[in-house]
Computed example of a mutant assay.
Amino acid sequence: MADFKLIDVDETPYLYVERSTTMDPGEISRAMGSAFGEVWAFMEKHGVPPGGGALSVYHDYAEGRMAFRAGFVVARADMAAADGTVKADATPAGRVLHFTHIGAYDGLRDAYDGMMRHMESEGLAYAPPTWEVYLNSPDEVHEDQLVTKCYQALAG
């Protein structure tokens, strides 16, 4: 069971591309992989260093699909490099519900189900966006050692 905490966060600037998929885990994984690759190539071409981990930002879930942004945390000044399909934005500052997921990405769905139950029991209402920061990758560690920081914006 994840340890859910209310915390205050600062904005986090990032470069991203948008994707939309069904809720199929395989399709999500492929779309994220291609998005991360596209943004990484852009950053290398333009000399933009990563300022933190890879991240995904979820804004919309409708009719069995989800729209998300995938990219990398960057320094605020590097947001100006955005061009073409690579855009810049920042996660919102303020109070969020936070938890850390350790393990395979396919376990995130259960963690989010637990988060929703926790929010309901605490009388919390969510608002977009939800975002995840990936502190390592399957290329670096075994999937049971993956660390994902998860953040949920709150309504009102």
Rank of each mutant, 00 (worst) to 15 (best):
I28H: 04
Y16Q: 05
V86P: 07
G26L: 05
R19N: 12
F36R: 06
D3E: 14
F68S: 04
E38W: 02
P50F: 12
V9A: 01
V39Q: 01
M79P: 04
A82M: 08
A31V: 12
V57W: 08
T12L: 02
H46R: 13
P92Q: 01
G84L: 09
E11K: 05
Y61W: 15
T22I: 07
R30K: 13
V39E: 09
A31Q: 01
P92K: 00
E11H: 06
R69G: 01
E38C: 10
T91L: 01
F68K: 06
T22L: 11
E44D: 13
S34P: 04
K87D: 01
D78I: 08
H59D: 15
Y16D: 05
V57C: 12
V9F: 00
L6E: 08
P49M: 09
D83Y: 07
M79N: 03
W40Y: 15
M66V: 14
K87G: 05
G47L: 08
V57Y: 03
T12Q: 11
P13Q: 09
M23V: 10
G71S: 10
R30N: 13
S20E: 15
P92N: 04
A90N: 10
M66F: 10
V48D: 03
D60L: 15
D89A: 14
A80R: 09
I28R: 12
A88R: 04
P25S: 11
M32G: 07
P25G: 09
A41Y: 12
P49C: 09
D78W: 06
G37C: 03
